[in-house]
């Protein structure tokens, strides 16, 4: 999935930056499907992603582990009461995890990157979240309809 996410930059629409699909899938798998990927899996997947992209080793695992940690412990039972709240809670969790990783990158490189790709990355991820959510709802509705 991470590789697919990166390869999206071949498409003209995602030239500036690619959406963070893995964060959406991770969040939805914990919240909706109660599938909890292990910490070790996330750590290893993140490391492989960093090796493929050539980013600083450890950046993606931090992001994924933070995302899981926040989804599990802070917002899972307290904030998400309705499905409408999912988008808000995802936005908070994603922005918080992303800001920490961004801050870490700025500290490591000692320079601030251009903001337009970052805003595009955040924006397109937040736009994609409800779309993926709706399509999952639609599929589950169709399967229920077929079963009944």
């Amino acid at each position: 999935m991470l590789n697919f996410q990166k390869s999206l930059s071949f498409l003209p629409f995602f030239e500036i930056a690619t959406p963070n699909i893995i964060s959406i899938i991770l969040y939805l798998s914990i919240i909706r499907f109660r599938i909890n990927p292990s910490n070790t899996t996330l750590f290893l997947v993140g490391l492989v992603h960093d090796i493929i992209t050539g980013a600083n080793l450890g950046i993606t695992p931090i992001f994924l582990l933070l995302l899981k940690y926040l989804t599990e412990s802070l917002f899972l039972d307290r904030l998400v009461k309705k499905s409408d709240d999912e988008w808000i809670s995802f936005t908070i969790i994603f922005l918080f995890s992303f800001s920490i990783v961004l801050l870490l990158n700025v500290m490591m490189n000692l320079s601030i990157p251009q903001f337009s790709p970052i805003f595009f990355h955040i924006g397109i991820t937040l736009i994609l979240f409800p779309l993926i959510n709706i399509s999952i709802n639609f599929f589950s509705f169709v399967t229920k309809l077929i079963k009944s």
Binding site: N39, L47, L57, G58, Y69
Partner: peptide, 21 residues
Amino acid sequence: SSRNFNFILILLCLSLVFLGK
């Protein structure tokens, strides 16, 4: 315990980032 392990892994990643640099 999973949360603690998560925290340990985050610390490990941080040290990896610095080592990588």
